[in-house]
Each structure stands twice: as structure tokens, then as C-alpha cells.
């Protein structure tokens, strides 16, 4: 019962169909406060569709999504202040400076000016750059861009952060630094939902949900998953889980 008490995300029978194609097929799960929850799956398994529905970018075909006890469908406006979102596709204004991007997103969330200033100098310090002003965002290395994207998603201090393949295209060192940041946030009691297809990243999660053809085929901690499929590493466990699922589908 204690799991239900501190569940900040509650998904029930979530379905998304695009015409005849079912992208997300009836998934249900809960995410605890402060948890790092990872969606693991191949390309096209439905990870991105699921995360976009949960944060409110995509309307579900059916099912119920509750974020912090608020129904996303009924009052999307109330959920907006509580969540931050960042995606694999870099979606900031590349023609503007990083500073200008942060000013803009801080402003549309109604963040106070000195708060934005504080966050800007924090990011500059983290990235070890003297200024965020004189560069064009388009010219930044990928790792920096993603960190800037994350900083923009965090400006209004959301409780829940959605990260859709945040590290794709980032070099290994940049990825490690990004995950250190995720850990720092998790330590601040923020809930993080992240999609990935990197096994080493999945290891960092508290809970992972393995997705295949729009369904969640298993959901547990990385250690339990490894044990369940009696594999030494998550990579083997993942492949075994997918193979078993395929066999089950063929049998049916």
C-alpha cells in the first residue's frame, strides 16, 4: 500500500492508436516520488508515444493518467507548472543565444528574473563556460545543447521531469555528466521519467519498464530484471525478455 501513497504518476490502461496502428497497447504502472523511472525498448516500441501522452503533448486514445493526483485529461493547465520536458530532438531556439533561450522559457513560466539569473550562472558554472550570451545555440556541442535543454526544463522548478532520449547523439563523457545531473535532481526528491535504448543508462534507473510493440512486458528494478532472466548484464536480460515475449506472441 505504501507504493500507492507516494505515487506521483499513476497510469491506467493507457492506449494510443494511430489509425490501425497501436503505438501504446494498454499499459498501467505507478511511479514513486523521487524515483528514476526508465522506459527501455527498441526504436518504435512506443516509449516516446507513452512519455508524450503522460506529459500532455499527445492525447491518449483511452486510459487514465494522473500526475500528482491531478488528471491530465481533466485539468491539463494545473499539471503544466509541475512538469518539465526535454526531448531527443533538440527543441530550443538555435538562432538565439543560450541566455536568451533561458530568459524566454523562464519568462513564459513566470519565473522571477533573479531566479532565472541564478540558474543561468549555475549552468555556466556547470558547463565551465564564461558566458552564455555571446554564443549561438546552434554552434554548441551536442552535450552542451542537451544540458541547456535540461536547464530550460528545470527553470520553473518542476517536481516531475520527463526526458525523452535525452542523451542520443551525446558522447560517452557527456552522457555520464548528464546522468550525474539526473542523480543530483533525484537526490532533490524530483521524480524523473526517462526513455532510453542505452543499457548502461538503464542501469542507473531505480525502476525500468521494458517495452515491446507498445506493451510493457516487464517492470522492475534493474537487479531484479537481471535475476529474473538469469543474465549477468542488463543487455542479455533485455534481449532474453524480448525473445520470450516474441515466442509468447507467436504461441498465441
Amino acid at each position: 500500500m505504501e507504493m500507492i501513497d507516494d505515487a506521483v504518476i499513476n497510469i491506467e490502461n493507457l492506449v494510443k492508436k494511430f489509425g490501425k496502428f497501436t503505438a501504446v497497447n494498454n499499459i498501467s504502472f505507478k511511479v514513486r516520488k523521487g524515483e528514476v523511472f526508465g522506459f527501455l525498448g527498441a526504436n518504435g516500441a512506443g516509449k516516446t508515444t507513452a512519455i508524450r501522452m503522460i506529459c500532455g503533448l499527445l492525447e491518449p486514445t483511452s486510459g487514465d493518467i494522473q500526475v500528482s493526483g491531478i488528471s491530465v485529461k481533466k485539468s491539463p493547465e494545473k499539471v503544466k507548472q509541475k512538469i518539465g520536458y526535454m526531448s531527443q530532438k533538440f527543441s530550443l531556439y538555435t538562432d538565439l543565444s543560450p541566455e536568451r533561450n533561458m530568459d524566454f522559457f523562464g519568462d513564459i513560466y513566470g519565473v522571477a528574473k533573479d531566479e532565472i539569473k541564478k540558474k543561468k550562472s549555475f549552468l555556466a558554472q556547470q558547463l565551465d563556460v564564461p558566458s552564455l550570451k555571446s554564443i549561438k545555440t546552434a554552434d554548441l556541442p551536442m552535450g552542451f545543447k542537451q544540458r541547456l535543454g535540461l536547464a530550460c526544463a528545470l527553470l520553473h522548478d518542476p517536481d516531475i521531469i520527463f526526458l525523452d532520449e535525452p542523451t542520443s547523439g551525446v558522447d560517452p563523457l557527456g552522457r555520464r555528466e548528464f546522468w550525474e545531473e539526473i542523480y543530483r535532481l533525484s537526490g532533490m526528491d524530483k521524480t524523473i521519467m526517462v526513455t532510453t535504448h542505452f543499457m548502461d543508462e538503464a542501469e542507473y534507473c531505480d525502476t525500468i519498464a521494458i517495452m515491446n510493440f507498445g506493451r510493457v512486458i516487464d517492470i522492475a528494478s534493474p537487479d531484479s530484471i537481471k535475476k529474473k532472466y538469469s543474465s549477468a548484464n542488463l543487455n542479455d536480460a533485455f534481449i532474453r525478455a524480448i525473445e520470450m515475449d516474441r515466442k509468447k506472441m507467436e504461441d498465441n
Partner: peptide, 13 residues
Amino acid sequence: EQGTFDLIKLSPV
């Protein structure tokens, strides 16, 4: 096209 509208959509504007 660039995806920045997603962020505007998620914001309270």
C-alpha cells in the same frame, strides 16, 4: 517543425 512549439504547448502561456 523545430519542436519548440512542444515546449510552448507544455508551458502555461
